[in-house]
Design a protein around this nucleic acid. Sequence first.
DNA 1: TTGACATATTCCCATATCGGCATGTAATGT
DNA 2: ACATTACATGCCGATATGGGAATATGTCAA
Lengths: 128, 128
Amino acid sequence: MARASTTSDAFNAVAEPRRRAILSYLAGAERPVGEIVAALGLEQPSVSKHLRVLHDVGLVRMRCHGRQKLYRTNAEAIRPLHEWAGTFEHYWQHQLNRVKERAEAMVRQGSPDVKSPGPNLLNLKEKS
Amino acid sequence: MARASTTSDAFNAVAEPRRRAILSYLAGAERPVGEIVAALGLEQPSVSKHLRVLHDVGLVRMRCHGRQKLYRTNAEAIRPLHEWAGTFEHYWQHQLNRVKERAEAMVRQGSPDVKSPGPNLLNLKEKS
DNA sequence: TTGACATATTCCCATATCGGCATGTAATGT
DNA sequence: ACATTACATGCCGATATGGGAATATGTCAA
């Protein structure tokens, strides 16, 4: 079997850089297809196809207005992605702390060539 | 041209459900390949291939220990994903507020069949 | 050395993907 | 009715993908 279809879920849809670009461009305001084409410098059929994928997984909403179709990203559909990634936030904070503590321990044991740079070593932020 | 190679960035690597499963399983603790195979019920070559992809994009770290290799997810590499998705947090809050306000307005104008359910309508959370 | 064990790699296949080009379709203008 | 505008779709080719089976590599143990 081949890879799961790109229209199956948001994770697959978002794997495409151009689709991410479209989503970013379409956050905040409705735009007709033509503007997307102009703004991102893509071929019109290509944009239509990407919009189709995004629409199929609910990442964009569409509204007809005369002969143009106005698209807009449905930010709600990006939340699952954000939350899945957020699952690991806990761990990357741990990792940062481990690196930080190890570095501080080395300083405390007195590597002669390291002048104690103070508590918050290596510009590692506390939480973020 | 075809799809961007899966080994090119974290977005593509994470588009695979099994790879996400592996990442979740490998967060928090090192595990040898065999355990992943047993825990997730996948074929060993399949796991090895997925691990290769994940390793190539830096989503997992590897350490040799005797004849086994211990893998662990590198949570740091998931942050870009989290941050990209977080870019839209702003917008989905707006959308929620709009829906909420519209619903509350309808209630205030007194649709006869809606008994005012109180301030926080429709179980829409305030921020999260 | 020989053999068992833990992983990695290779080959093949069916399928999905994206881009480009041509064409289809629907709404508008004259 | 006809041309034009704004999109969508269909077809094609080159390539990437994931699964399965077989095989290669590397490490330890007797």
